[in-house]
């Protein structure tokens, strides 16, 4: 039969690549089946947030002027933050939610673990796939803010390289964080973890205010440095709204890179421990 043609591999990495592609196809099929719920889940939070804070509030005269700077609309401040949340939340959820079930209750990860490629690459595929979803989420949220806001949103791509690098690093960091959560947390507790970890991370991730302005609350400014989302929000501010005070480029990129290396190593190790006794 046809399988015989792949029986004798001359190119091991070619076979890994085909197996990897197979895993991506499987994930694509599953996402395609649930694309509308996926999209709704992605845009609901930013849509409502943008609607209330940048449409309703200005209309009823309860507008927020960030840092007393009337030149910059609140929508401009939160736009990068909302994109950051979308990337981050989507990245974590896309890995952690299915993985917790696949590893915990049904063990249905088994067939993918038995695919002819290293188990660490099975984990990598999950992260890469969630990164694609993160990028789709980011691309869906940004125009939404521009569309809904009643105030002018002054966003320009000041630096494409910075935008691309930040989005990619953020998506991978979120995916590996999802891998860590998905391997450690039991399926029943995953909802709890989302409210205990993901929600605080979102609210304290410099999404609705630039990090520099936290100088008014020094302890919080220091504390938020431990929040990975801060670097994503700030990185997107550098790329999209350079007029707003932001962290230095080097700080953002080195923090995200360090997080990627640390979470990548930890997540991969945890995943291997879970699937191989």
């Amino acid at each position: 039969m046809t399988a015989a043609s792949v029986r004798r591999p001359s190119d091991r990495y070619g076979l890994y690549l085909r197996a990897f592609w197979g895993l991506m196809l499987r994930d694509a099929r599953v996402l395609a089946r649930e694309f509308i719920p996926f999209l709704l889940r992605t845009i609901m939070n930013p849509l409502l947030f943008t609607f209330v804070f940048t449409y309703v509030f200005p209309k009823i005269g309860a507008g927020i002027t960030p840092g007393g700077n009337a030149q910059v609309s609140f929508a401009t401040v939160i736009a990068p933050g909302l994109v950051a949340v979308a990337i981050f939340f989507q990245g974590i959820a896309a890995v952690a939610l299915p993985l917790a079930t696949e590893l915990g209750g049904t063990r249905e990860i088994e067939d993918r673990v038995m695919a002819p490629l290293p188990v660490s690459v099975v984990a990598l595929e999950k992260v890469i796939w969630s990164s694609l979803q993160s990028i789709i989420a980011a691309a869906a949220v940004l125009p939404l803010v521009l569309l809904v806001s009643a105030e002018p949103v002054s966003i320009t791509v000041a630096s494409w390289p910075m935008l691309i690098v930040t989005v990619l690093l953020a998506a991978l960091v979120a995916g590996y964080l999802g891998l860590v959560i998905g391997t450690v947390v039991k399926p029943k507790q995953i909802g709890l973890i989302f409210s205990l970890v993901v929600v605080p991370v979102t609210f304290l991730g410099c999404t609705y205010y630039p990090w520099a302005q936290l100088s008014h609350i020094p302890w919080l400014q220091v504390l938020t440095l431990f929040n990975p989302l801060v670097y994503v929000s700030e990185g997107l501010r550098i790329a999209l709204t350079p007029g707003i005070p932001h962290m230095p480029v080097a700080a953002v990129l080195s923090a995200l890179t360090a997080l990627l290396v640390a979470l990548g190593a930890l997540g991969t190790r945890l995943f291997i421990t879970r699937v191989i006794d």
């Binding site: 046809t2 197996a19 197979g22 089946r33 049904t106 063990r107 249905e108 088994e110 067939d111």
Partner: peptide, 29 residues
């Protein structure tokens, strides 16, 4: 190696045919 595990570890997010089809794709078909 082909493995049939003791418990049903089929991919619940997929149909019967998809379980087989994607398994084949993992193996480069």
């Amino acid at each position: 190696i082909g493995v049939v595990t003791q418990f049903n570890t089929l991919d619940r997010a997929c149909t019967v045919e998809e379980n087989l089809y994607f398994h084949g794709r993992f193996f480069g078909m």
